[in-house]
Simulated assay, not measured.
Amino acid sequence: MQFGMSEEQAMIVNTTRAFVETELYPHEDEIERSGRMDMDLVRELQGKAMAAGLYAANMPEEIGGAGLDTLTWLLYEKELGRTNYALHWTAVARPSNILLAGTDAQKERYLYPCIKGEKWDCLAMTEPDAGSDLRGMKASARRDGADWLLNGTKHFISHADIADFAICFMATGVENTSRGTKKKITAFFVDKGTPGFSVRDGYRNVSHRGYTNAILEFDDCRLPASAVLGEIDQGFDLANTWLGATRLQVAATCLGRADRALQHALSYAAERQQFGQKIGKYQGISFKLADMALDLKAATLMTWEAGWKFDQGTVTESDMSMAKLKATEMLAFVADEAIQIHGGMGLMEALPLERIWRDARVERIWEGTSEIQRHIISREMLRPLDA
């Protein structure tokens, strides 16, 4: 594993950071105040992201993406992660790579328009009574002749309000396993406007203002057989195959925000004077800076290693869980310490620190809670011992 960036990686990092600082930072305050993204602004920024070659960069080059390897993609995600989540996710969209599992006809209808910026997708898994326990979902799909009828509710569905379609995971039967009866799951494409499918406003969220969530309701929503993504009853394997790297994406964006918070804290410690000298001279502050830098570097190395191993085909579930767990908990620590160093000013909206602090909270919950990540890590440790 090489620890230095290639010329191409450095160029991508510099281009992405310049775009974030020039095009996205200026709009943060307005989105924080309003809690919404103006679609005219989204379209404007979307065009600029495309011109810069940053749009849909996670997609293969042969279908219009940037064709980044996993490690380079994570370097890019770190730079995007420095800014408001709604800004970078909406204006610099990265379509879900599960769309690559579709048929040729499905790619024409869903994948390619997302890459061109003509459509947005959203993933619908979580339910009011089934969060971490995906196989405990109650929303279901049953056959009705050649069609499927979908019923049930999904919630916490990110940016479903602007999405043109949802990729919905529904229970389609049961099976007996060594751990008891489990739901069989199938994934479906559901277009907005399909009869029986409705999207309601979700919950007001303390984290990531402007990045909305929604409630999806299905009431005898009829879909043709062609709406099935992947194999029938194989949705759980489909999700595990295509969505595993999302934990690394979360880790990478956390690195960007933590680095921004640390730089603010470092600058303040070098400039602020109390009792006749710069506060960075006091061990109470300087040791905080050292601990913040130490934690950030550890999380960075774990994330880059997992990304590198992903491309080598040697990454494990534990590798990705460790990166996600460490980076999300590190961000919470760094954001909190950065505010402490700034004192009362750290909580003022004049600085991005209070936003970074608020935004950090959700990272330990979505894409698998910290407890789930610890379960995955310990399970992988114990399994060779038959424990």
Rank of each mutant, 00 (worst) to 15 (best):
Q2E: 12
Q2Y: 13
S6R: 12
I12M: 14
V13A: 09
N14W: 03
P26F: 08
H27I: 02
H27T: 08
E30A: 01
M37K: 07
D40I: 13
Q46R: 10
G47W: 04
G47M: 05
G47L: 07
A49R: 04
M50Y: 01
A52L: 04
E61N: 01
I63H: 01
I63A: 02
G64Q: 11
G65K: 01
G67K: 05
W73V: 05
W73Q: 12
L75T: 08
L75H: 11
K78Y: 07
E79S: 00
E79V: 04
G81D: 12
G81E: 09
G81M: 02
R82N: 07
R82A: 11
W89F: 10
S96V: 02
L99I: 00
L100I: 05
G102R: 02
R109L: 04
L111E: 09
L111S: 03
P113D: 02
P113N: 00
I115D: 00
I115T: 06
K116Q: 00
K119N: 00
C122H: 00
A130Y: 01
L134M: 14
M137C: 06
K138L: 11
A139I: 09
R143P: 07
D144F: 00
A146S: 11
L150E: 00
H155P: 02
S158Q: 09
A160D: 05
A160T: 06
D161R: 06
I162H: 05
A163P: 06
A163I: 08
D164Y: 06
F165G: 02
A166Y: 04
I167M: 01
I167T: 08
C168M: 11
M170N: 00
A171H: 02
R179G: 12
K183P: 01
K183D: 06
T186E: 09
F189Y: 07
K192H: 13
G193M: 08
T194I: 13
V206P: 13
V206T: 15
V206E: 15
H208C: 15
N213K: 08
A214M: 15
I215C: 11
D219C: 05
P224A: 13
S226L: 11
L229W: 02
G235R: 08
L238I: 06
A239V: 09
N240G: 11
N240V: 12
W242K: 09
A245M: 13
A252C: 01
A258K: 01
Q263T: 08
L266H: 14
S267F: 10
S267Y: 12
A270I: 00
E271N: 15
Q273E: 14
Q273M: 07
K278M: 15
Q283E: 12
D291E: 12
M292Q: 06
M292Y: 07
K297H: 10
A299F: 03
E305S: 09
D311I: 00
S318Q: 14
A327V: 05
E329G: 07
L331G: 03
A335M: 07
E337M: 03
A338K: 03
Q340W: 08
H342K: 08
G344M: 10
G344R: 10
M345H: 10
M348A: 09
A350R: 10
R358M: 15
D359T: 09
V362D: 04
E363F: 12
W366V: 14
W366S: 09
E367M: 14
E367N: 14
S370Y: 05
H375K: 13
I376Q: 01
R379I: 04
E380K: 12
E380V: 06
L382Q: 08
L385C: 12
